[in-house]
Design a binder for these strands. Structure first.
Lengths: 332, 332
DNA sequence: TTGAAAGCGCTAACAT
DNA sequence: ATGTTAGCGCTTTCAA
């Protein structure tokens, strides 16, 4: 495996000439260009991207930090972003934060040390310190999923979670449910906070009672959904329907119901966020308000690329609000 | 954002002294070490990993190429690998090949240009050219999932697919099924080929007839599973049970059955490979022979790290055969 | 059209 | 204990 210098020596040319031939830059005779390209192929030359970006001070990689790529929601976000990025010659570093602030911070530093030129971030919590730091460094960031309240001056791709939660709750209300509870996410995240807020608004609008013990806080992971459902079922008067703030908690909650032989929605109706079913075999089909994760990834990557390529657009912040779609399942 | 030189100037020291302080290498006075570390923190210094690995000729990233990380099987493999790698200071480049040879090749070149020092590869097809090339370059490779027959001299983590398929088929046979078909994968991949072989062996052993039209070849993706099932159902005498070579094709196949109002396993029994259900809500629960994807990722990464760190072990090839486990579901 | 030379940020001999 | 120097592989002025 040769490098530029190797090829240059082999051909009796200078490194710069070979570089120009390979990058098709600057003036060069057709003859030598041919010769170089042929040699490059013969020797299976692969440019050292590390050296290239060190020298030219312009990397071609971006990072993404999400809580868990096992979650098909994030997996799809990543896939969407990756497709756009690859088409544009960028590579994507994927990091998991596992809903952990510490890991998120570590991932951030790793990515920065890798000289990423952009970041897609589904942040945990509201701590904006690390993010502010990024912005100062001039690294473009696009936030997705969780958009901390106190963060103005960022780009983001998200949905109107408040309204989405209102509509989702309305589904239950329209079907005659009155005793409605919620398994919410952490209030420190906009997805948790706003969806809870929407739920509250919808309930108030309909004149329905909000009962403290009908709202159980989870951490967006499956076990917390199970735990929350057990808590609800242990109440003297459990709700007859619940709104769940994300897919995994809903899987946990419904799992508990099924195990106890309770019917969904007969004994308890369940609606959720982002419970898209890739397999098509989940039963009952969960009525859910869905963000389009692929689209989120695509849009986030597109904004990022624009900021990277367009120096001017760096100071223009875009807050893209996508429309979630309601999947009308059988769980209510 | 300062670099080493910046900090050196700021402190009136030489670059090398600062470097030594930060890397805690070589002799240095406690006093200056303190001073440097403090300054590094003050200026939010983050080492440029690109420059570092260019200089020291030793990268700290490895790549993984899998067909589709939306598939929770691969997602888990990636997660397992990532956990081991991160603990050891390595980062992971994730590439999708989408079961496409062309994309796999592209991903390979991208990764090589990124100077990865190791690769975990779930290859598509039997074309070993690109892989042989890698080996010559001295880049350690661990193959997973699909182990091309003609590739000796590689490390790999896999299962005994032939035996696994025999056992899976035996499940059906033991439950009295005689008219058994298969939705197989591409024969060019060991997972496709060996699972088909195992099926054939089990059938022969039991003295059951192998009918040509009861074996439909798919491409491991969901639509091909749907198509295959439609084909089977269109036969004059469809099989009464089928073995499906992977999870996604099984989802497609069962989906078709459910849509037609056919019962599983009443009208057709279905068993499959790797149909692990993260949600716990898939119905019917699919009887399946499961590799432990997390473990595969962990083992693959461990082998890779050993090869990277241990020059001597480079020429010792390990072919780890993990035990798959049978999940006893309700689909037969 | 081509070559020589500088230098990206860092590490590691070698020198002091 | 610290500084000086060379150079990783590449791009990019500047000269020729």
């Amino acid at each position: 495996m040769l490098n530029l210098k190797g090829i240059a020596e082999e051909l009796g040319l200078s490194v710069s000439t070979v570089s120009r031939a390979i990058n098709n830059t600057g003036r060069i005779s057709e003859e030598t260009r041919k010769k170089v390209l042929e040699a490059a192929k013969r020797y299976n030359y692969i440019p050292n991207d590390i050296a290239r970006s060190l020298r030219s001070k312009s990397g071609n990689s971006v990072g993404i930090i999400a809580s868990d790529m096992i979650n098909s929601f994030y997996a799809n976000v990543i896939k969407g972003a990756q497709s756009v990025l690859r088409e544009n010659g960028f590579t994507l570093f994927v990091c998991n934060s596992d809903e952990d602030t510490q890991l998120e911070q570590e991932a951030l530093e790793t990515l920065l040390s890798k000289q990423i030129c952009g970041l897609i971030l589904a942040s945990v919590g509201e701590d904006s310190e690390s993010i502010r730091q990024l912005i100062k460094l001039g690294t473009p960031v696009v936030l997705i999923d969780n958009i901390p309240d106190d963060l103005e001056g960022f780009d983001s791709v998200s949905i109107d979670n408040i309204n989405a939660a209102i509509k989702l709750t309305d589904q239950l209300i329209e079907h005659g449910y009155q005793k409605i509870g919620m398994i919410s996410g952490p209030m420190s995240q906009s997805t948790g906070h706003d969806r809870y807020l929407g739920f509250k608004i919808a309930m108030g609008k309909a004149g329905l009672p909000m009962r403290e013990d009908w709202v159980v806080k989870g951490d967006f992971k499956k076990p917390s959904g199970r735990q929350a459902m057990r808590r609800l079922l242990s109440l003297d008067a459990p709700p007859e329907a619940i709104v769940v703030a994300n897919n995994y908690m809903a899987y946990g909650a419904i799992g508990v119901l099924k195990e106890k032989g309770l019917a969904v929605p007969g004994d308890m109706a369940v609606v959720a966020f982002d419970a898209i079913d890739d397999t098509g075999l989940i039963s009952p089909k969960i009525t859910s308000m869905n963000q389009d994760p692929l689209e989120i990834g695509i849009q986030a990557a597109t904004i990022l690329l624009d900021k990277i390529n367009n120096g001017q657009s760096k100071k223009i912040y875009r807050n893209l609000i996508l429309k979630p779609s309601l999947y009308d399942g059988e769980s209510w």
